[in-house]
Design a protein around this nucleic acid. Sequence first.
DNA 1: ATTACTAAAAGACGAGTAA
DNA 2: TTTACTCGTCTTTTAGTAA
Lengths: 215, 215
Amino acid sequence: MKELKILLVLGKKGALEKKISISTSNLGKELNLPQQTVSRIMIKLLKGGLITRVKGIKGYLVSITPKGKSLLHDLDIALDDVFKPKATEIRGIVIEGLKDGRYYLGLNEYKQKIKKRLGFVPYPGTLNVKLNPESIEEKERLQRKLGIEIEGFKKDDRIFGPIKCFECRINRLKGSVIIPKRSHYGSDILEIISPFELRKKLNLKNGDEVVINVE
Amino acid sequence: MKELKILLVLGKKGALEKKISISTSNLGKELNLPQQTVSRIMIKLLKGGLITRVKGIKGYLVSITPKGKSLLHDLDIALDDVFKPKATEIRGIVIEGLKDGRYYLGLNEYKQKIKKRLGFVPYPGTLNVKLNPESIEEKERLQRKLGIEIEGFKKDDRIFGPIKCFECRINRLKGSVIIPKRSHYGSDILEIISPFELRKKLNLKNGDEVVINVE
DNA sequence: ATTACTAAAAGACGAGTAA
DNA sequence: TTTACTCGTCTTTTAGTAA
């Protein structure tokens, strides 16, 4: 909480764009916190990669890193969600995927985690949807939103990254949008999983349009 | 941080407007936190007056209190400040005050705290400005913003409340807007303090227009 | 002036578990 | 199924103080 407050004040002072000159004692005065506490928190922010700093003539020259900025931005989006919620509609056409979804979703680790967090065992394969240009922005909104996080794992010296999920309806059928942290696809492709084989259940062929509703 | 996350999720689920049904274990699953932690944090939010709840059929019926809502709202405004900062200009006319500013600012406790936080010893008296209608909204924005907090104190069994301050320029002269948490004035009155007697220094009479720039 | 270490105390965390 | 207590272990806090 104090961490966030300090980051906010730094941002307010312009540390998102430039280096600002600040001393721990001054910042402490401003926030009514002891100098030691500010010092400690700044070190923590530094170690967390949220700010960078160099010694200045009076205190430090501090700026917020992209990571710090994205933390603030994510919070901003989360608050937007709270105060002005809106359902997201995404449209696109079914395309052929790389077939690697079959492999990943076949792994017991992902299967069990998905079962636990989403409440179903996924059909081993993802439905790949190429988004309409106006839906790409909606996907980017999703990427910033808090979703259901499936954490990654290691296996046989390979790293399997974390995935963010959003419950959705695809042509009215329940499923889940999955957004891997490190995707093999471009940002115009959306992957959907479901307990069923979606192509069969919805009678879909490549090129068919689908409508995905999130929330 | 976890506290904030939980409050955000509750808000996202609609707890700002209605009672929502939620169990600590479900919320834990959603946020990938143990049930015990969610339980503990909910109790803390409850004690802090940020949420209310009643036992439901499955878990609790929870809603966010006005205090909780204002915490989220304040954060929203703080983030706005970071991402889209804008200077505030407030206009109004000088009016006669209740003369109680003289008493409060004469108290050693306030004097010393103001000296420490704002860097000057205030002239014992506030300049009272009746705001133009279009400036009242700006004052309300200020009330929600993070300012420099002067904490309250007790003396002789009386309680002297906290004050929020914003450095400002009044007709170009440095001063500070002060917003007591519990004010004796309506929301169309703004109080200004300064190291100087503003009426003399700026040659002001009742009815004169003044321009106040914050930030 | 600065910053940040030490140390003691307070508070948060979450597995175990009762109700 | 629920919720929330206990309690050992970390983490955070901040006065004192050195550099």
